[in-house]
Amino acid sequence: MFKNILLAADGSAHSLRATENAIQLLSEKDSGFVTVVYAVDGSTSKSDVLHNKDSKDIEVKRKEKLKDIFGSLEKANVRHELKIVHGDPGETIVEFANENEFDCLVIGSRGLNRLQSMVLGGVSHKVAKRANCPVMIVK
């Protein structure tokens, strides 16, 4: 169905479910390509800098966080690359999606109720509303 998919992931369980769905969506595994976008916000930046010696260690730690996602992609033999963006997750993911051309954006949903998403802010909802390409929210 799709050839070029953008997968928004942060290493959580719901982003892992989204990964499985992204793989399913690829029409041909060999020619398909998945771009994994991981958004690092200000407070994550702060705690990552605080807990790691230098920028190399930070990079290693972030890749480590996403290793299950890369594991699934590798197991399915799907070509992929990682793109780390900085800022508010909702905004930066939308920005990255709209700056580039993707057939589809796949993102996991935390499944928050109304109160939770009011307080915590629903990233997937924000992304679905503002991205120009088709968006698949995985529950």
Binding site: V40, G42, K46, S55, I58, I84, H86
Partner: peptide, 12 residues
């Protein structure tokens, strides 16, 4: 210097 590192990371 800690703040500089954080800004380094935030702005890549």
């Amino acid at each position: 210097l800690l703040t500089a590192q954080i800004v380094d990371d935030m702005t890549d």
